[in-house]
Design a protein around this nucleic acid. Structure first.
Lengths: 238, 238
DNA sequence: TCAAAAGTGTTGCCGATACACCCATGG
DNA sequence: CCATGGGTGTATCGGCAACACTTTTGA
């Protein structure tokens, strides 16, 4: 038997799509936000930090991350994937004890995030305009953002942000918010159809000022999202 | 201060290219091999396992993985990247204590691997024909193999297996061994040139029974390989 | 009937593949 | 001069981006 040799923490970068809330932006524009927790002790007292904590002995890593999301927002994430393990000796600051953090990233639904009641020391902050965070958390968020922006282009992640049924344009707006650029509606539609898994409900969204768009769902069987090496089938070894 | 809550281990999947050593195969064919360590105690007594051990308090995660390679083979890896953190509660077997393993994967040079003197309880095994290993190590190796085969197609990994200078064909043979399929020599050459970083030494390899092929190097400045979120520049956030 | 979004069609470009072909050397 | 691998050229295919165009609704 070997003695424990470091504190193991699990933290989570939780992404939600929320109104941009910017003086210059359009009123309906949305962007990526992250809930962060204010630290109440040193090191980094009063700095914002990723939610998380020591790994509970009875939980798998993934379950610990899911539990963090529940604790912060009150509901489960729609998507959850391990990001990276950060464990440099000096990452707790010069005087702190050594902590190895296994970081997950999560996506939560639009409607749920709107309803969430955040605790006293929790606040939503824009993912791309963060202040200096505690520890190495700025670098961690940047990496999670990079991963999200990459993966959304080839995996069906965007569906996690919105409810079913949805219109193609709603899904496109999610992609545009994540990627930060406009996408061609015609080509987006074709790519989406080619990827498979899209199911036409036959219904249409009413009340728009223009032609009513079709409403779609995703086929739950097809295109399950890979969330790690043991979650196959998907991109992982079969 | 929080009490340590689990044993943290670092293990490494070390890939080397070695002669296939198969009755049916061509004499010059090569394939992927991994050094494994025989366990000398329960659980999984006498099973083969990935090299590694508890995280030393004074080492970064990456350095711990590099040190494992040194300990097993006697030299440093040419490439090293974090693979995944495995930490399910029951992964140590039903009776074991909980261990969270942060797994790295490494590539080592051809010539160095040939010279390596393995210890008593270490042996090279074919990566794609492994027996049942200890713990969840079969799944880990499969995931590392999947990652290697993916990444070799878009990142300059193959150079890690061979010495400079090299011929295009030598590099192509590495790709073919890793991917397990033939590649078109003409197209491989063009893809490689388009990727950039290839430097013609102006010299030629003599002694072949046919037209002497050109010898190349890689430009060390260009195309540094991304080995994680903090190793930029590369595919990570800049 | 007009504005604007939904949805379809068409074209051109670029990269990858397949494969024809010439080059250079040892035997 | 022949066999063999080194190396270059080229036709074709398919995916993707750009954008023209038609459809459908509310106002």
């Amino acid at each position: 038997m070997v003695a424990p040799n470091a504190t193991l923490a699990v933290s989570t970068v939780i992404f939600a799509l929320r109104p941009t809330d910017d003086p210059g932006a359009e009123s309906r524009a949305r962007s990526l936000w992250i809930p962060l927790v204010r630290r109440l002790r040193n090191p980094f007292d009063n700095f914002w930090a990723l939610p998380g904590g020591p790994l509970p002995a009875e939980l798998d890593l993934r379950d610990a991350a899911a539990k963090t999301v529940e604790a912060v927002l009150g509901f489960a994430p729609r998507y959850l994937e391990q990001l990276y393990a950060f464990g440099d000796v000096d990452r707790s600051g010069t005087s702190g004890e050594r902590v190895v953090s296994i970081v997950y990233w999560a996506l939560v639904g639009d409607a749920e995030a709107r309803r969430a009641r955040l605790g006293q020391n929790v606040r939503w902050l824009r993912a791309d305009r963060l202040p200096t965070l505690a520890f190495d958390h700025n670098a961690i968020v940047d990496y999670a953002l990079w991963r999200l922006r990459n993966k959304v282009e080839y995996a069906p992640l965007a569906q996690a942000f919105i409810d079913e049924p949805f219109t193609i344009t709603q899904l496109r707006k999610v992609h545009e918010a994540v990627l930060g650029r406009r996408l061609d509606p015609a080509n987006f539609r074709r790519q989406l159809a080619a990827a498979g898994g899209l199911v036409d409900t036959g219904e249409h969204l009413a009340g728009t000022p223009h032609r009513p768009p079709r409403l779609y769902r995703f086929d739950p069987a097809a295109h399950r999202i890979d969330q790690g090496p043991l979650a196959g089938p998907g991109r992982s070894p079969s």
